[in-house]
Amino acid sequence: MRLTTLTGEDLRRVCVRTDQSVRESMAVMSDAGLRLAPVLDAESGRFYGVAADGDLRRFLAANGSLEAPVSDAANRNPVVLEEVLNPTEVRSRMLWRGIEYLPLLRGDRLEALYVLWTVSAPERLTAVIMAGGLGSRLKPLTDACPKPLIKLGGKPILTHIIEHLRNEGVGRFVLSINYLGDMIVDHYGDGASLGVEIAYVHETSRMGTGGALGLIDPATLSEPFVCLNGDILNDLDLNALRERHLSSGWDATMVVRDHNYTVPYGVVRKTDDGSFVGSEEKPTMVFQINAGIYMLSKSVLPVVPKGRFYDLPTLFEDMRTRDLRSGTFTHQGRWIDVGTREEYERALDIFEAGY
Score class of each variant (00 low, 15 high):
Met1Tyr: 09
Thr4Gln: 12
Leu11Val: 03
Arg12Pro: 00
Arg17Gln: 14
Thr18Gln: 02
Asp19Arg: 03
Ser21Val: 07
Ser21Gly: 04
Arg23Asp: 15
Glu24Trp: 09
Ala32Asp: 11
Ala32Glu: 13
Gly33Gln: 05
Gly33Arg: 01
Pro38Ser: 06
Val39Trp: 04
Ser44Cys: 06
Ala51Met: 06
Ala51Gln: 07
Asp55Thr: 07
Asp55Val: 03
Leu56Ala: 07
Arg57Cys: 08
Gly64Asn: 10
Ala68Asp: 15
Ala68Leu: 02
Pro78Gln: 04
Leu81His: 04
Glu83Thr: 08
Val84Ala: 13
Asn86Pro: 01
Leu95Gly: 04
Leu95Lys: 04
Arg97Asn: 11
Ile99Ser: 11
Tyr101Ala: 13
Tyr101Ile: 12
Pro103Ser: 09
Leu105Ile: 05
Arg106Trp: 14
Leu110Tyr: 07
Glu111Cys: 08
Tyr114Val: 05
Trp117Lys: 04
Val119Tyr: 06
Glu123Trp: 10
Thr126Met: 10
Val128Cys: 13
Gly135Gln: 07
Ser136Pro: 00
Arg137Gln: 14
Leu138Trp: 06
Lys139His: 12
Leu141Glu: 14
Ala144Thr: 07
Ala144Lys: 02
Lys147Gly: 14
Ile150Trp: 06
Ile150Asn: 05
Ile150Tyr: 10
Lys151Pro: 00
Leu152Cys: 09
Gly154Lys: 02
Gly154Cys: 07
Thr159Leu: 10
Thr159Trp: 10
Glu163Ser: 03
Leu165Phe: 12
Leu165Pro: 00
Leu165His: 04
Asn167Ile: 00
Glu168Gly: 00
Glu168Ala: 02
Val170Gly: 06
Gly171Lys: 01
Leu175Tyr: 14
Leu175Val: 02
Asp182Trp: 13
Met183Phe: 05
His187Asp: 14
Ile198Lys: 03
Thr204Ser: 13
Ser205Leu: 08
Arg206Ala: 15
Gly210His: 05
Phe225Gly: 02
Val226Pro: 00
Gly230Glu: 15
Gly230Leu: 11
Ile232Trp: 01
Leu236Asn: 03
Glu243Arg: 11
Leu246Ala: 13
Ser248Asp: 13
Trp250Leu: 11
Asp251Val: 01
Thr253Val: 15
Met254His: 03
Val255Lys: 06
Val255Thr: 10
Arg257Asn: 11
Asn260Thr: 09
Val267Asn: 03
Val267Met: 13
Arg269Val: 08
Lys270Pro: 00
Asp273Ile: 01
Ser279Gln: 12
Lys282Asp: 07
Pro283Ile: 01
Met285Ile: 11
Asn290Leu: 14
Gly292Tyr: 09
Pro302His: 11
Gly307Thr: 05
Glu317Pro: 00
Met319Gly: 08
Asp323Ile: 00
Gln332Asp: 13
Arg334Gly: 07
Tyr344Trp: 11
Leu348Trp: 09
Leu348Asn: 04
Leu348Val: 11
Ile350Phe: 14
